[in-house]
């Protein structure tokens, strides 16, 4: 198990335990974390699981995947350098303690 921390736009922190191998999106859905919609179920087709990886974690989370840039253009909120689709971040032991910030709008 690893730990993931979701920080909502208003600063609320939600800390959940997650399975290695799961995605940051699926973990949010399984734990009822508000602010991640994930409407397409992780197919990288809806941009409703947008998150900003905390500056301290961007290297560990790795670069954007193939096609992720284009889909991020469809996100409802501002896209920053740290923007990722959380369905494309798969949890590894190295990501234990990962902090992601959530945008105000997903749809």
């Amino acid at each position: 198990m690893v730990k993931v921390i979701y920080v909502a736009k208003d600063g609320t922190r939600t800390e959940v335990k997650a399975q290695v191998g799961d995605t940051v999106m699926q973990t949010a859905l399984d734990n009822d974390v508000a602010g991640i919609v994930g409407e397409c179920g992780g197919s990288m087709m809806c941009a409703t699981c947008h998150c900003y990886v905390d500056d301290a974690w961007t290297d560990a989370a790795g670069p954007r995947k193939d096609g992720e840039d284009d889909m991020l253009d469809c996100a409802a909120d501002e896209v920053k350098e740290t923007s990722r689709l959380s369905c494309q971040i798969q949890l590894t032991p190295e990501l234990n303690g990962l902090v992601v910030h959530l945008p105000e709008d997903q749809v």
């Binding site: 197919s43 469809c74 409802a76």
Partner: peptide
């Protein structure tokens, strides 16, 4: 819908 064919016009 869901998956790859999730509605392209949803937004």
């Amino acid at each position: 819908g869901s998956g790859p064919h999730h509605c392209a016009g949803a937004h």
